[in-house]
Design a protein around this nucleic acid. Sequence first.
DNA 1: TATTGCGGGATTGTTCAACAATCGCTAGTT
DNA 2: AACTAGCGATTGTTGAACAATCCCGCAATA
Lengths: 226, 226
Amino acid sequence: MVDDWISALESERASMGRASASEKVADALRTRIIEGDLRPRTRLSEERIGAALGVSRNTLREAFHLLGHERLVVREFNRGVFVRALDHDDVRDLYRFRRILEVSSIRQAALDGSDLTRLHAAVDEGGAAAAVEDWRGLGSANMHFHEALAALAGSRRVDEAMRQVLAEMRLVFSTMSDPRTFHEPYLEGNRQLAALLSAGNHDEAERALLTYLDRAEAQLLAAMSA
Amino acid sequence: MVDDWISALESERASMGRASASEKVADALRTRIIEGDLRPRTRLSEERIGAALGVSRNTLREAFHLLGHERLVVREFNRGVFVRALDHDDVRDLYRFRRILEVSSIRQAALDGSDLTRLHAAVDEGGAAAAVEDWRGLGSANMHFHEALAALAGSRRVDEAMRQVLAEMRLVFSTMSDPRTFHEPYLEGNRQLAALLSAGNHDEAERALLTYLDRAEAQLLAAMSA
DNA sequence: TATTGCGGGATTGTTCAACAATCGCTAGTT
DNA sequence: AACTAGCGATTGTTGAACAATCCCGCAATA
């Protein structure tokens, strides 16, 4: 059935006891989107989803606003909200932005010997996930690595921007069939990057990061064309 | 009367004929906040503002979401929404972020000889505003200058991030009594920066920009302490 | 005096039902 | 085939209602 995710949504209905209703709805939808149950361009009908989750249209709309803010859905006036679909330009722009944020984070780390524990922890997390062939988990670890990398800039707003970017990256990955292909090659890259930073070799780290991002971008673009 | 801005809001009620109601409400409130009529920490009562603008609570709430997304207001659960109040840390973080975005824009411009017309247009706009002593207009021109500067990065997401940052900057300026002090000194700085970029002297431009931002940050922080 | 606990009023959070505005599609016309 | 009118479905917006929560004053207590 095409509407299989509706039942998946209903299963999330249990965990909605506390906090703001709209946030819980947003959580549920976010999970469905990231897990790939809700494909890009899918229209999110207020009526059906409201019924599935047992919330009113108003609350649902607030949730849509939250997801729109995270760029996971787009709202088209008088037409509804749709799961966001990223094109090649989006991916190129995402990586352009990532280069800016992550390179400047490394440069900041070069100035003030930052704390690299989070970074190494993310590497370890990735190693553990790969060891048990949990490729989705490896993907998350990868995200954590880059989140930790951006955190070296020591700026709340950089953190926030990076989280935003990574959420959009998940949107891209959600459409890919084989997570391993897109995450496993970068485990070693992360390890090397962390090592270079630990060694204080920031120039080399910057170069490595740029090659890393170039490669990832090219791979994603190629996969999107196919 | 303390509630003078209520009538100012009502005057905006006329211009609300087209487009989404919530966006219009957000526009009206945004103006009031930026103009300084709504001071930081002011609580935005759903009842009173809804009545003043003639919209329902639900629509008003959607508008609050939009403004929250722009970080002009903060929503506190079960307590209401308040005009955002920035502290010293916020200002420091804003400038940290601006350095990252604007420096990388200049570096990008160094790689691909970007189009500088918007930049020069913003300089001219500032000159014209200063000539007639329109200091608020000079402030806007200043924003446009840095928006144009960030645009050199050639990234939609950088543009968006910069707009976000500048909106927060307006929030700071809205609390300042004398706009001239905070905008006039930078007219010459903008002119020089544009000239350096036109001349292709990007290294010097980068240094000038950093001094520029350091000075602006220090001046704002000093003003906030007073 | 300071603090704790307890109303009670005011405000926000959420739901519901209704209507207006708009869109997309289909059928009919030329 | 193209174009238009109309219709059904969906979103946009409203208003009212109720529940949940917070704020503030007041009394009781130590």
